[in-house]
Nucleic acid binder design. Structure first.
Lengths: 131, 131
DNA sequence: TAAGGTTTTTAGAACTATTCTAAACTAGTT
DNA sequence: AACTAGTTTAGAATAGTTCTAAAAACCTTA
């Protein structure tokens, strides 16, 4: 967990107890996709009690400091992805689960870089499947 | 406006006064992107008073009957697109406006049709620009 | 063209996800 | 150890959307 402290500091964030606990859940294994609610209940389930306000707070601050990426899938809730590299998503409509698509798996031609003089800030691709 | 009545009936919907007024706004000119709120205030501005509940109701029923397409851009609100053909979007972050991208303008390789045995139901691409 | 059954509209309440508030607490500095 | 700024918290507040149930409109049949 000492590396998590470093990770937070490197992102310019104070390693508080709550942020470390959340980081431990999010960043210790493989990449994952969470919602505020799923994170809150998973932590609660394992005996880690952090207020929902803090969960939201931390998800937002992690996102603005580049530790997470927010994904718009569904207007009814926000997903956060621990994979911050460029990539795309499959979305399983029945289970409401996400799966990463490696950027090399999907070629886009031409890859836009500008539009009307504005820079492209991100390219979001969601492939919805009926399962 | 008689053709709007036909359009609604063809979609299996009763052409009520409110639906016709909304259709007249949405389907009489070129394609557009609306939110419940923008539609409500545009109609109000032109003297057409339809309750917000009906606006939501009609947007949802139009979507489920194929007259509109819902787009997830932003978890804080839903956009509806009068263009129901396959296409993609530019999203202008500052103005929160959408612009259509013709499907031929962007090639995807390989174009996925299945994933884990499930059919692809849609491919949503949003290219965000900082303007 | 009137009656009757079904669908739609409406105002307002309810709900859900998220943010705000301001008081208590904690981390890092001196 | 004391100070200051940043963080957490419970609960209130807010925003977007859906629900409720009563009134109104639509459409069919007579």
């Amino acid at each position: 967990m000492i590396n998590l402290e470093k990770k937070l500091r490197a992102a310019g964030l104070r390693p508080t107890k709550q942020r470390l606990l959340i980081s431990n859940y999010l960043f210790s294994g493989s990449h994952m996709h969470v919602t505020a609610d799923s994170l809150y209940s998973e932590l609660s389930k394992s005996g880690v009690n952090i207020s929902l306000a803090t969960i939201y707070n931390v998800l937002n601050i992690f996102t603005s400091h580049g530790l997470l990426r927010e994904i718009s899938i569904d207007s009814s809730r926000s997903y956060f992805d621990t994979n911050t590299k460029k990539h795309y998503h499959y979305y399983y409509e029945k289970t409401a689960k996400l799966e990463d698509i490696d950027i090399e798996k999907l070629q886009i031609n031409p890859l836009p870089e500008k539009r009307n003089g504005f820079d492209v800030s991100s390219i979001d691709i969601v492939i919805r499947v009926n399962g």
